[in-house]
Design a protein around this nucleic acid. Structure first.
Lengths: 286, 286
DNA sequence: GGGCACTGTACAGTATTTGTCTAGATCATG
DNA sequence: CATGATCTAGACAAATACTGTACAGTGCCC
C-alpha cells in the first residue's frame, strides 16, 4: 500500500517485539494481518499490518483477550489510545495550522502522520471527512478565504488521488462514482470510493459535474453494479431528476452526500446511502 | 577512471562500500541499475545508479530484505530514456486506449512508462500537455463524452498532484498559481507549476476559480515573487480585469494559457508567459 | 474435578533468499 | 604484450522462513 518498504517476518518481529511464531498464529487464528507473499512465499508485511500488530499487542497488554484484541485491531484500533503516536485531534490541529499558513510541506507531513498512524478507514472517517466538513462550514460562514479553502482542498485531494491509485483494477464489482451537474464538491465522494475500494470494489471515478447522459457508455463495457451520485445540495439531484430516474431504470443508483435524503431517494428510484462513508460502503453488498 | 562522470565497477564499489560481485548480483537479480556498457562490455555506472545503490544499501541496513530494498530504491524515478523503451507516441496511444476503455490501471501503467522513461520536463511538455490539448479539442468538438474527459482529467490530475508533492518547500522564490473565477481548466497550470519547481521555485497552488481578492493574505506571509494566472478563454481575464490590475500594482503578475495574449497582458499590467510550459518557466528568472 | 477451548511456544523437515566464490575468457592500458 | 580489472555463468552455504503439528498453561463451564 504505502511505500516505506514491506517487512519480512523476522524484521517485523524485531520491530514490534512479537515472535514470528506468534505472528503466524495471529494471522491464521484471527486473520489479524494479510501480508503479501514474495515469489517464494515469504510473508511481506505492510505498514498497515505493522500497525495492526502493534494495536493487538497493546490491547493484550491492556488486558483484552487475544480474540477481542484482534477484533479491535482489525477495526483500525482505538484512535485515542496509542502511546507515543499523535492523536487525530493533534494531527488535525497541525493540519489546520499548515493550511492557514499555506504551508504545503507541513500539511503533507501532517497527512503523512495521519496515514502512518491510522488505518485508512478511521483516517478518512474520523479525520479527513470531518475536516472537509468543517472546511465547508467555515467557507459558508466566510471564516476562511477562498484561497485557503482551495489550497487545502487541493492538497488533500492530491493525497486522496494518490491513495486511489489502481482502484479501478481487481476483481470485485464495479461502482461508478460521479457528481450531478452543478456539483463541485468531490472529496467526500473520493473518500467514499476509497472506502468501497477497501471492501474490494472496483471504482470508476468520473468526478464533478458529470452530465448523466454521458454515463451511457460507461454502463456497458464493464457493467457496473451501482452508480453512486453525490451532492451537497438537494437541488443538484432535483435538477437532474429525469436523468437520474432514467438511469435508475437501467442500473442500481445510490445517492449520498448532504443533499441526499430518504424522500429524495424514493422520488428518484434510488437507494439512499446512510451513515458515514464507512457504514455506507459496508451497506453495499460486496 | 571516469568517463563523462561514469564509473567502472571497481570505483563505484569503493565509493559505496559494496563489493563488485554484489553490485552485479543486485543488477541481475533486481535490475537495481542498468549501467551503460563500454565498447568492450565494461559496466559504466551513472550518478543515478550510484544513488540507487546507496539507497539500496541504506534500506538493507534499516532491516528491509534485498528484494524490498531494491523495489524502494527503484521508486526514486529514473530520468534517462533507455533503449528499448517505448516512444512518446506509443505511450500516448496506450493512454488513449486506456482512457477510451475507462481502464484506470492501464492508464496508470502507461503513465508509469512515461515518467520512468522520460525526464519530467519532456514528459510534461511533449506528452501530457499535448494530450491535454487534444483532449480539450475533442471535448469542444463533442468527439468524446464528458464522462471520458472527466475520467482522463482525474487520472492525469492525480498523477500530477503526486508529482507536485512537496513543491511548496525549499528555498527558491515563491510563485502563486491560480485560475481566475470561471476558469476550470487547471491541469496546464499544474504542469507549469511542476516546470517551475524543476527550476527551483516554491509553488503555492490555489487552483480553479480563485477570486483574486482572496489572494491578499497569500501575498504577505511568504511574499511571492510572482502570481501566475492561467485561463483558456480571454474572457476570464477580462472579467477579472480590475482585480488583476489591482493585483499587478502589488506584485508581479504573469498570465498564461490559451486565453492569454500580448495585448491582454499589456492591458492588465501583467507579463505574458510565452511559449510552452518549459520555455515559460525558463523565462522567469530563478 | 473433568472436559474443553484459548493461547503462546516448540520442533521437524523443507524451501527461499542472498552474499560470496570459482573458473575461464575478455578488456584496458602503460 | 603483460598485467590487473572486469566479464559471464553457475555453484554454494548461512541465515531465514514456510507448513503442519504438537504441547503446556490458563481459565471457564457443567
Amino acid at each position: 500500500m504505502t511505500d516505506g518498504g514491506r517487512l519480512r517476518i523476522g524484521e517485523l518481529s524485531k520491530r514490534v517485539g512479537v515472535s514470528p511464531e506468534l505472528l503466524r498464529a495471529w494471522e491464521t487464528r484471527y486473520e489479524l494481518v494479510q501480508p503479501e507473499r514474495s515469489a517464494g512465499g515469504l510473508r511481506l508485511y505492510s505498514q498497515q499490518d505493522e500497525r495492526r500488530v502493534r494495536v493487538m499487542r497493546d490491547r493484550i497488554a491492556a488486558g483484552l483477550s487475544a480474540a477481542e484484541a484482534a477484533r479491535v485491531a482489525k477495526l483500525g484500533g482505538d484512535p485515542l489510545a496509542r502511546d507515543g503516536s499523535p492523536s487525530i485531534p493533534e494531527i488535525l490541529a497541525d493540519l489546520e495550522r499548515s493550511f492557514a499558513a499555506l504551508d504545503e510541506p507541513a500539511a503533507q507531513a501532517a497527512l503523512d502522520q495521519l496515514f502512518e498512524t491510522f488505518e485508512l478507514a478511521p483516517a478518512l472517517s474520523q479525520a479527513i471527512v470531518p475536516f472537509l466538513y468543517r472546511l465547508g462550514e467555515r467557507w459558508a460562514a466566510a471564516e476562511t478565504t477562498v484561497a485557503h479553502e482551495h489550497f487545502a482542498s487541493d492538497v488533500i485531494g492530491g493525497r486522496l488521488r494518490a491513495l486511489a491509485r489502481g482502484w479501478g483494477g481487481g476483481v470485485g464489482p464495479r461502482a461508478i462514482l460521479a457528481c450531478p451537474p452543478g456539483e463541485q464538491h468531490v472529496l467526500g465522494l473520493v473518500c467514499f470510493g476509497l472506502a468501497l475500494r477497501e471492501r474490494g470494489w472496483r471504482i470508476t471515478y468520473l468526478g464533478a459535474e458529470t452530465p448523466l447522459d454521458s454515463l451511457a457508455y460507461a454502463l456497458v463495457e464493464p457493467s457496473p453494479a451501482i452508480v453512486v451520485l453525490a451532492a451537497v445540495s438537494p437541488q443538484r439531484f432535483l435538477d437532474a431528476r429525469e436523468d437520474i430516474k432514467a438511469l435508475a431504470g437501467r442500473v442500481r443508483v445510490g445517492i449520498g452526500g448532504a443533499g441526499a435524503s430518504e424522500g429524495l431517494a424514493a422520488a428518484l428510484d434510488a437507494d439512499l446511502l446512510v451513515g458515514g462513508i464507512i457504514e455506507a460502503a459496508a451497506s453495499l453488498a460486496p
